[in-house]
Amino acid sequence: MRRATTWWKTGIGLVLTTLMLFPVYWMVNVSFTRDEDMRKTPPDLFPIDGTLEGYRAVVDQQLPHLGTSLLVGFGTVALTLLVAAPAGYSLAKLRPAGGGLVSFVLLVAQMIPGIIMAMGFYAIYLNLGVLNTLPGLIVADATIAVPFGVLIFQAFMSGIPEEITQAATVDGAGPLRTFWSVILPVSRNAGITVALFAFLWAWSDFVFASTLNGGGGLRPITLGIYAYIGNNNQQWNAIMATAVVASIPAAVLLVVAQRYIAAGVTTGAVKD
C-alpha cells in the first residue's frame, strides 16, 4: 500500500514538472520550427518538419555576442571574487569595528533596483567616455554579485573554526598569509557558489547591457536576442534558437552544480 501511494505521488510530480517546464520545451520546439509553419494553427507540438535555420542564424550572427557575454561573465567573476573574498574574510575573522554597518549596507545594496543604478552609471560613463566598453559593463554587472558574494564568503568563513586560524597565527603567519594559505583553500565551495552566480547574473544581464552597451559593437547575447525581437519580420526560430543557446550556462549549472545553487538561494535569506 505504501508503495502504491508513492507511485501515485511520483505521477503527480511528473505532471507538475511537465507543466512547469512546458515553456522551456516550447522554446526548443519553436527553435526547430520552419518559418512557414510558424503561424500554423494549431501549432505543431513536435518539430516534425524540423529545420536548423534558427541555429544557422545563431552561428552566422550571434557568435560575437556570445563571445562578448563570455568575456563579460569571466570578467565579472574575477572582479567579484577579488573584491568579495578579502572582504568576507575581514568581516568573518578580523571583525573590524563597524563591520556590522558594512554588512547592513551590503544587504541594502542588494535591494536597489538595477535600472536606477543603470541611470547613474550611464551619466558617469558618458562623461568618462566608457560607454560601450567591456570593462564598463563588467564593473556594472559586478554590482549585482558583489554584495551577495561578500555575504556568502562571510557566512562560510565564519564557520571555519577559530583553532585553525589561531594555529596559523601561532606559526607566525600574518593575516595575509592566513588568508591566502589557510582560509582561501578551505573556502573553495563558497568561492564556487559566488563564481557561478556572478557568471550567471552577468551572462543574463539585460538592464546594464541595454543602457550601457546598447550602441556599440560589443553587445552581449541578451542584446542579440533583443535586437531579433525588435526586427520587423520577427524570425521566431532564430530568436528561440538564440534563447536556447543563451540558456546553456543555466543548464550546465543545474547539472553540474545543483547543490551550490540551492545553497546560494538559501544562504543569506534563511538563517535556520
Binding site: K9, T10, M20, L200, I225, I229, M240, A243, S247, A262
Partner: peptide
C-alpha cells in the same frame, strides 16, 4: 517519493534562465 529530488531540481530551471529568454518565450 521516488524522483522527488530530481523533479524539485528541475523546478529551478525557470529561475536560472536569463530573463530575456523567459520573457521572449512567453511573448
Amino acid at each position: 517519493f521516488r524522483l522527488s529530488a530530481t523533479l524539485r531540481a528541475l523546478f529551478l530551471v525557470p529561475w536560472l534562465l536569463p530573463l530575456i529568454v523567459s520573457a521572449s518565450t512567453w511573448s
